[in-house]
């Protein structure tokens, strides 16, 4: 199984986490929504697989390129 990091493209806050650990996700599916500069920034899965880790919680601040979740594909 390949492990793939899901990274945030922006500095901002976690608004909503839409998927839970164990959920299967398709490539391009939205895992969570970040909020930065009053914009909703969806974080999409880079691959199809199973969501094995969610590393952030709502309200938490994230930096650009920070790993926010992990997919096992």
């Amino acid at each position: 199984m390949a492990r793939q990091d899901v990274e945030s493209e922006v500095t901002g806050n976690v608004w909503k986490v839409l998927k839970s650990v164990g959920d299967s996700v398709a490539e391009g599916e939205v895992i969570m929504i970040l909020e930065s500069m009053k914009m909703e920034i969806p974080v999409e899965s880079p691959a199809s697989g199973t969501l094995s880790q969610v590393l952030v919680e709502p309200e938490e601040q994230v930096e650009e390129d920070q790993v926010v979740a992990v997919i096992e594909s």
């Binding site: 493209e9 922006v10 500095t11 500069m37």
Partner: peptide, 12 residues
């Protein structure tokens, strides 16, 4: 706006 012209991603 402080955002990328192509992706529209905000930039800080």
């Amino acid at each position: 706006y402080a955002e990328d012209s192509q992706t529209l991603m905000p930039s800080t």
